[in-house]
């Protein structure tokens, strides 16, 4: 996982600073820039140094949270520090929604394979996957927020939990469909396993066979997916936060891109990669807990 972090940050850094085109022009988003700002940027990114040195110095600045300043003069670290908790809240809520509902629906569909509930849920999940998040976001914002008035269409200052329900739902919806389908497949595979038949032959109740023998084994691939998906949710936050005006990392990144504020872009992406790496470490640990076979490898 550590090499992944270095590799991914290197990749981002390379894309931003080593591709053809003047990096300073890139940093400014093509807009004219005051000489003082330009000099500050050159110093910040050590652009007079060879690429490798630049990258290493950049890593150093990442570790020390010395991430430079935005165009308006605020330290990037502070800006990220304010936005990050909001997105973390949003992503955790989305993850909870997709995990709870995805697994629940997936288990019921899998156990009733081929029945009406299963077929309905399957088709609906395809629909959810097919409709782009930003369309879903608009529609839900319009219907639930504006027409029905059940929730605030945009998120207020400080992004309280209640306001985040609707955006979290939109953010988690596509992954919900994937979790559902994955759980369903996994359940169907496991419920025909030999050890499940043996468990039934022992005289266990149906309930115990399902919870103890089918469910735990089926959750292993789902947990892996959920972990990897945390990174995806962070990426998806760009769209969702834009629609609902959530003052989180996604909106920050999006605005920074539009403004061509590259220091912020690189820093935010690095943070997101870090989150992805940590999420995967947690998944590895969960995985070992769920599946004793890999503990001794």
């Amino acid at each position: 996982m550590i090499p992944v972090f270095f590799g991914a940050t290197l990749l981002v850094y390379f894309l931003v600073f080593a591709t053809p085109g003047d990096p300073i022009a890139a940093l400014s988003g093509g807009k004219p820039m005051a000489p003082a700002v330009e000099a500050a940027l050159r110093a910040q990114y050590n652009l007079d140094q060879p690429f490798w040195i630049q990258y290493l110095l950049y890593l150093k600045s990442l570790v020390t949270f010395d991430l430079g300043t935005t165009f308006s003069g605020q330290p990037v670290a502070d800006v990220i520090g304010r936005a990050f908790p909001v997105t973390a809240r949003l992503a955790v809520m989305a993850l909870a929604i997709e995990a709870v509902f995805g697994i629940a629906f997936g288990v019921f569909a899998g156990l009733r394979k081929g029945k009406a509930f299963d077929s309905t849920v399957l088709i609906l999940s395809l629909l959810v996957i097919a409709v782009p998040t930003f369309v879903l976001g608009f529609v839900l914002q319009f219907v639930v927020g504006v027409k029905l008035g059940w929730a605030k269409p945009t998120v207020g200052a400080g992004a309280p939990w209640g306001d985040l329900i609707l955006p979290a739902l939109v953010l988690g919806l596509v992954s919900f469909a994937y979790v559902l389908r994955l759980t369903r497949t996994s359940i169907i595979e496991n419920k025909n396993a030999d050890y499940v038949r043996t468990a039934t032959a022992k005289g266990l109740s149906r309930r115990r066979v399902v919870t103890v023998h089918i469910l735990r084994n089926s959750l292993i691939p789902v947990v892996t997916f959920l972990g990897a998906d945390l990174g995806g949710l962070m990426g998806g936050a760009i769209v969702t936060e834009g629609i609902f005006n959530v003052p989180g990392i996604g909106l920050l990144l999006f605005n920074a891109i539009l403004k061509g504020e590259t220091p912020t872009v690189v820093a935010v992406v690095s943070v997101l990669v870090l989150v992805f790496v940590i999420a995967n470490l947690i998944v590895d640990m969960l995985y070992a807990w769920l599946d004793p076979r890999i503990r001794y490898v």
Binding site: K202, G203, L204, V212, N217, L290, P292, R293
Partner: peptide, 29 residues
């Protein structure tokens, strides 16, 4: 099942649940 009719299945590799300890699987029986 269990106390009147028991079963010993064919393939020992696939008939024990890989994620539970052997003792657990006997105890629940």
């Amino acid at each position: 099942r269990g106390n009147h009719i028991g079963m010993v299945p064919q393939d020992p590799m696939s008939n024990l649940n890989p994620v539970w300890k052997i003792g657990f699987q006997v105890k629940e029986t």
